[in-house]
Design a binder for these strands. Structure first.
Lengths: 232, 232, 232, 232
DNA sequence: TATGAATGAGACTTCATTCAT
DNA sequence: TATGAATGAAGTCTCATTCAT
């Protein structure tokens, strides 16, 4: 099973592939289009059925493409999944990449929460694929988690700790704060079925997410800042 | 696909089966033992590989039992899964069943968070099976969610709203509070792989969970109570 | 596959078993009763589903008996089937055993047709099991066919030929006459589904069989006797 | 279990499929060839072992084809069987479709018997598959029997009755005449094992069938025409 | 680039049979 | 005599993958 190529996780910024066996990007126009179509389709299917439950036929159908043709672009189910995960990782990491220690924690953390929630709203399938991978013990992506993501988090934690030293935030564990933010923001994508069942309505609309955002930020920021009101 | 029998979800308290096709409980000694062995094994395997990825061979191995014998107790993979889900639902619901409006919200919600975290610590596999089911859109358990669980939550939300009217808690949406509690507490089981990768240590030990508990409660209670300190 | 023990087909008249592996009869009261129950049940089930389609569970259910207990009486499915076939053979052969050359062919053949049709009416399942066995190429019963039944038919054919020499019947092949009688009389049991579909009514009642009898005898006897009317 | 689509049994003449789930005919060369190979092989195997006794492995072997490839053409054993039955039905019905009331009954019925016997000689496996289906109670083909075949027979019966009114044939039940013809002609295919055992020779050769034909026609025509000699 | 045809591995499930009581 | 529990063999069917065009 091709796992993450931990050795050069930094390749992220260069756009190179970080998961072994992921197809190199070539530059024919139609190829790029088809690759995108396939990845989009695969993300949906993997989200709905999990790695094992998804079939290449389903992906092919969703991508309007024959199964052999699909395998022309990604030479195995495994590789396709790896590429999907990789793309999701990019989305996942993006907002985490720039916490500015010189700005106010309210703003920075608030913006981060906003972005994560926005991602959950816009790419719920991606979040669910990620969730599945984590729940299964991250069999594929663990190497990246343990290197690149770990380092990134360490830096962010340092930023938060700096804010704490400066008295700008409450004295809480930066890691657990991050975990809570992730948990809460992704929950709205991953557990959509549960939430929709509770509320009796679909999560599709923006208004719901705005309400969620308000509440989530309100609670998290209170706790985070150690103050009553995230705005004051 | 046997789905939840929503019609008599109230059967919960009586211990009756709520998922169609779930095997009736008979009372032979060896049967009870074997059923437990199988359910335990199946929970582990479903947690690690998901419904589709799990094979009856794996479950059989984990339960030290031949595959046909396993099917002697649960007549299909599907029924086995349904029974596993049902048992998890019981665990899941247990702590939610008694929020006492006459007691203080700190105590009640605090205890709820404690219990949920304790469940995540003790039964992480159960949580992960649940997570998988939700992520996949709750294909099996949705009927229960939409009836029994929904009603239960409505009652709890009412309790929280009562506290709010009495000025005991901040003015936040009771539902989103519940969602956040769920998200956060289960995260420590469902995303254990991610957390462990970040922290570089295993979540098995009690100390880690105590630290998580402290932080989670601190943040949530701040936000929830609208005050700086969950204890004051 | 236990086949017919051709060596001592004559054992028929002694009531001994002629199919290898068929259980010896012992003489406990309850045993005899259970054996009959099982054979009756098995005949029905084999008739409806064929040898391969029938399951011991079905036979057990039909005989109100657990599967292992059933196997206590007949130690394998094969043996059970062999015993069923053997019992059917007795029924099958019975009317053929006494064509009296000194009596009139009308009477003798007429009586034979009557008896065969009566058998079809009373024991259609037996006929269908037999039909299945023949259609499949008589894998089990062929040895008996080729010895005992063949000899028996040879004798009957001789009788018919004697009648022909005496000018009592038309000059037709005795064998083909026998084949036709078998074909026609058994057809009402074996192809009941087809006949019932054509006529839109069930064959259960005696009246239908009487009508069939009249027509069948009318046609066969005409042809057989070379005369217009089976009664003259 | 896909059953016959009784609603449009008339589709017969158009060559459309009449059994639900039977594969649509596409028109690739290799597909047609393979479908024929499979149907031929399946007919043989179903004839020898019955629906339940036949295995896809056997069919695959007989068709020189891997089992999964076989399922590429017919997506289940059931569908394959349905298609086999459908094809047999066509053969079965063919000679029944044109009894000409304006011609002599000797000629028409005689020709019908000839054709049926010829079918038994040429396609004995088809006849045996049909026999098995009937013996089992026609679980699959009953809907067609009860509609299309029933109507067809009604018309033929009317023709025969017309002949009777015109004094051209004896006063016998047209239905029972048809049943007898079917019974007798198919017997030579379905009970070949029994007949061969009696005669000690194989039915393969044409001479035997000619003898059978002579006798069968002799007897049936005598009875049918109410005269001594089918030719006068 | 695209796809119809083909297949080996492996999944779930059934079932005759055995074991133990 | 009777039956709950257990299993190996085998059957149907799925699916990732390859072949050939």
């Amino acid at each position: 099973m091709p796992k993450i190529d931990a050795s050069n996780a930094a390749a992220l910024t260069t756009g190179e592939t970080r998961i072994k066996g992921a197809h190199k990007r070539t530059h024919s126009r139609i190829q790029d289009i088809n690759r995108q179509k396939i990845l989009d389709a695969a993300t949906k299917v993997f989200a709905d059925y999990g790695y094992h439950g998804a079939t290449l036929d389903q992906v092919g159908d969703a991508a309007n493409m024959s199964k052999p043709n699909l395998l022309y672009y990604y030479s195995s189910k495994e590789e396709l999944y790896a590429t999907v995960l990789e793309r999701i990782l990019d989305i996942w990491l993006l907002p985490l990449k720039d916490l500015d220690v010189t700005k106010s924690p309210e703003h920075e953390i608030g913006a981060y929460i906003d972005e994560k929630l926005e991602h959950s709203r816009l790419y719920p399938e991606a979040s669910r694929v990620w969730s599945n991978e984590m729940t299964a013990g991250a069999p594929k992506i663990k190497p990246i988690l343990e290197t690149y993501l770990k380092d990134l988090c360490k830096k962010r934690a340092r930023t938060i700790r700096t804010w704490a030293r400066e008295g700008k935030v409450a004295d809480i564990s930066p890691y657990h704060l991050l975990f809570m933010i992730w948990a809460v923001t992704q929950h709205y994508a991953d557990f959509a079925a549960q939430i929709e069942s509770m509320l009796g309505k679909s999560l599709d609309d923006k208004r719901f997410f705005n309400e969620a955002k308000k509440n989530v930020k309100n609670i998290l920021m209170h706790g985070f800042l150690g103050r009553t009101d995230g705005k004051s």
